[in-house]
Structure formats: structure tokens, C-alpha cells
Amino acid sequence: MPVDATLPYDDQNIFAKILRGEIPNKTVYEDEWALAFHDINPQAPTHILVIPKGAYVSWDDFSARAGDAEIAGFVRAVGKVARDAGHVNPGYRLLANTGPDSHQEVPHLHVHIFAGRPLGPMLAR
């Protein structure tokens, strides 16, 4: 079910539980700002989720409330995960859904990294 990105942060969402260690994950990267792990229902040969460790509902929420160091650390983590996975060449896709029209399903900011095959057009026509 899509979430309304204007709602307050729900600390019972699945990513908050992963951050607290209540739900296992296949971690590929972690630092003070971010956690990256394999998606449990991959939509491409490589499908990694990168989440900030702070409690942010969406990209809009994150960009409005996070500090400069946290924003820089998260953005750098996304790039590092893609580089470390070997997807800079031939390429990868980043996706961050925000709000109901985008079908955001988990009310915690997350960036999908898709790679491993030609991904086709960005949106279905």
C-alpha cells in the first residue's frame, strides 16, 4: 500500500526494524549514515536498497530536515554501493519513490539500485 510522504515517521516500518536488528538482511554496505542491503524481491539481477540511518519518510523529508553531513554521507553511500557492485559501466538505475502517486510502499526513505541487465525505458509508455 502506498504511503503518504507527509505523514509522520512510523518507527514500526520494516526498514526501521532492519536498522534496529529486529529483521535480518543481506547487508552489502554500512557506515554511520547509511545501510545497504539486497532487496528480498529483486526486480533486476542486482537490486540493492540503500537507506539512511535517520528517521525520514521520503526524499523530500530528508532534504528538508537532515543535516549537511548526513545528506552528503547518504549520497556518497549510494554512489559507493553502485561502484563497489561494479555497475558504473555499463550502468545502473537509481529510483526513490516519494508519496502515493509513485507507489512508495515503505515510509522510510530508500533508494533502489537496479543493474545487471538492460533496464529499458524509465517509465512504461
Rank of each mutant, 00 (worst) to 15 (best):
E22F: 06
L119W: 11
R83W: 06
L123T: 13
E105R: 09
S102Y: 05
W59C: 15
G116S: 06
A55D: 07
G79E: 11
H103A: 12
K17A: 00
R76A: 15
L35V: 05
A16I: 07
D11Y: 06
D39S: 06
Y29I: 02
R117D: 11
D4R: 09
V81A: 07
P118R: 14
I51K: 02
A124K: 14
R65F: 03
W59F: 15
Y9M: 03
P45I: 11
P121S: 13
F74H: 04
P2Q: 04
F15C: 03
V57F: 04
Q43I: 07
L49E: 07
R76K: 15
Y56R: 05
V28D: 06
D101C: 02
P52Q: 08
V88I: 14
E22A: 07
A36E: 09
N89R: 05
W59N: 14
R65D: 00
H103Q: 12
N97I: 10
Q12W: 00
I71M: 12
K17Y: 03
L94H: 01
H87Y: 12
V28Q: 10
Y92E: 02
A44I: 03
L94V: 00
H47F: 04
A36H: 04
A85K: 07
M1V: 10
A72T: 13
M122K: 14
H110M: 09
E30C: 00
V111I: 13
I113L: 15
F62K: 11
K53P: 12
F114H: 04
T6H: 14
M122W: 15
N13G: 00
P42D: 06
H103S: 07
S58W: 03
H108C: 09
D61F: 14
D11W: 06
K80S: 13
V111M: 12
A36N: 05
R20G: 01
G21Y: 06
R65S: 04
V75A: 04
N25Y: 01
G116Y: 02
Q43F: 09
E22Y: 13
Q12I: 01
H87F: 10
V111N: 06
T6F: 13
K26Y: 09
